[in-house]
Computed example of a mutant assay.
Amino acid sequence: MITIKEVARHAGVSISTVSYVLSGKRSISEETKRRVEQSIAALGYHPNAGARALASNRSRVLGLVVPLRSDQNVPVVMQFVSSIVTSARDHDHDVLLLTKEAGPGEAHRVTAGSMADAIIVMDVESADPRVPELRTVDAPVVLLGVPDDHEGLSCVDLDFAAAGRRMVSHLADLGHRSIALIGSPPAVYERGTSYAARLLAGFQQETARRNMPVSVHSCAPGYDSVSACLDTVLHQDRGITGLVVHNEAVLGQLLLELRRRSLDVPRDLSVIALCPDDVAQSLPVPLTSISVPARELGAIAVQMVVTRITQDHAPEVRLLQPRLTERGSTAAR
C-alpha cells in the first residue's frame, strides 16, 4: 500500500506539504499542489479514513436515523437505506445506521462525538418530537419526510398529498363515483407518520372537491385483517368500484382475496396503489400505481446533506411530483 511518505518523496516535498494539499488547511502554491496531485495519481495513493478525518476534522460518515418498527414494510425501508448507502459512497462517505428508536438527544450525541458529519432522518412524524433538537444540532441535517413544522429544516420527500389527489382523479376520470382508501396499518396513523397523513389529506381533498363520498379504512397486515377490511369496504350498501391502496404489505393478500371472492381486477373492481414499481409489477395482477421513488429520494437526501457540509446552504424543502404508470388494473365504469 502506497504511503503518504512515498508520495512526498516522489513529489520532492515534505510529508506535511502533502497533508496540507489533501486537507486544504494551508495555502500551497499551485505549482507544488499540481506536483503533489500528479504524484498521488501516478502512485495510486488513497488516504485512509482515519488520516482523512484527522486532516480535515471530518469523519466522512453520515448518520442515518431509521428506527425499524414492527408496523413498517422493511423491504421498502431498505430500498431507501440501500440508495442512501450507495449515494454516500459516490460522495466518498460511509453511513452509520441508527436503527433504535431515537428520542431527543440522539442527533447531538452522534454529531458532538464526531461519529458523523451530518444526519439524515427517516420515519418522520407530522408532529415529530425531534424537530426542536434537530434545529439546534451543530451539523447539517436533512429529513427524508416533512413534518408539519419544518421551518429552518431541509426536507425531501414525495409529494404524498399530490399523490392522493392524483389517484382519486385517475379513478374519477374513468367514471368511478364511489371509491375507498385502504390505508396504512393503524399504528402508522396513531403515530402520526407524516407520509400517511399527507396522502390521506390529499385523498380527502380530491374526493371532497369532486363531491364523492369518503371511505377510509386502515388495514393491518395479515390475511384475517385483509379479509375483514374487505368485508367492510365491499359491503353492498357502499357500491365501491375502485380502491386506492396505500399499504404495500397487504397488496398481494388483497389481490388473492379478491380472486377468492370471484372479483376480477379491473372488470369488477379497479385497483390503484402507491408502492415501488418493482412491487407493482411483480403482483399477480400488475397494478397501475404511483411510484415510491426510493432510489431518487435517497440520492437527493445525500446530495442535499453533502452540499450543506461543504457550503453555507439555506434550508429547503423538495417535494417530488407523483409519477403514475398504468398497468391495466383500472378500467372505465
Results as ranks from 00 to 15, higher is better:
2 I>A: 10
5 K>S: 15
7 V>R: 02
9 R>W: 00
9 R>N: 04
11 A>M: 06
11 A>N: 08
12 G>L: 09
18 V>G: 05
22 L>N: 12
23 S>D: 04
26 R>F: 04
35 R>S: 08
35 R>Q: 08
37 E>W: 08
37 E>S: 09
37 E>A: 09
40 I>H: 14
44 G>I: 00
46 H>Q: 15
47 P>D: 07
48 N>L: 13
53 A>Y: 08
53 A>Q: 15
54 L>F: 12
58 R>L: 06
58 R>N: 06
59 S>D: 07
59 S>R: 02
61 V>G: 10
65 V>E: 01
66 V>F: 13
71 D>R: 03
71 D>M: 01
74 V>Y: 02
74 V>C: 06
77 V>Y: 02
77 V>M: 10
79 Q>M: 13
82 S>F: 13
84 I>Q: 07
85 V>H: 07
98 L>D: 03
101 E>V: 02
103 G>H: 12
105 G>I: 00
111 T>D: 12
113 G>E: 03
113 G>F: 01
116 A>L: 03
117 D>P: 01
118 A>Y: 02
121 V>G: 03
122 M>H: 08
122 M>L: 15
124 V>M: 06
125 E>F: 02
125 E>L: 10
126 S>L: 14
127 A>Y: 00
130 R>V: 02
132 P>Y: 11
136 T>S: 10
137 V>Q: 00
140 P>G: 09
143 L>E: 04
143 L>R: 00
144 L>A: 13
149 D>V: 00
150 H>R: 15
151 E>L: 14
157 D>L: 12
161 A>Y: 04
161 A>Q: 02
161 A>P: 05
163 A>F: 08
164 G>K: 12
171 L>I: 13
173 D>G: 11
173 D>P: 11
176 H>G: 13
176 H>R: 12
178 S>L: 00
182 I>G: 12
183 G>E: 13
183 G>S: 15
184 S>K: 07
185 P>A: 14
191 R>F: 11
192 G>V: 05
192 G>A: 01
196 A>V: 02
196 A>E: 02
198 R>W: 01
199 L>M: 08
202 G>I: 03
209 R>D: 14
209 R>Q: 13
212 M>Y: 05
214 V>H: 12
222 G>M: 09
223 Y>I: 14
224 D>F: 02
224 D>L: 08
228 A>T: 12
231 D>I: 03
232 T>E: 11
232 T>A: 09
237 D>Y: 03
239 G>F: 05
241 T>M: 00
242 G>C: 11
247 N>D: 05
248 E>L: 10
249 A>T: 12
253 Q>W: 05
254 L>D: 14
259 R>F: 14
260 R>F: 05
263 L>R: 09
264 D>Y: 02
266 P>L: 00
273 A>E: 01
274 L>R: 08
277 D>R: 13
282 S>L: 08
282 S>R: 09
284 P>H: 07
286 P>C: 06
286 P>Q: 07
287 L>W: 12
291 S>E: 11
292 V>C: 14
293 P>N: 09
294 A>D: 06
295 R>I: 12
295 R>A: 15
297 L>Q: 11
298 G>P: 01
306 V>P: 00
306 V>A: 00
308 R>Q: 07
309 I>H: 05
311 Q>C: 10
315 P>H: 09
317 V>Q: 15
319 L>T: 06
320 L>E: 12
322 P>N: 13
323 R>V: 15
324 L>V: 02
325 T>K: 14
327 R>W: 13
331 A>F: 09
333 R>D: 05
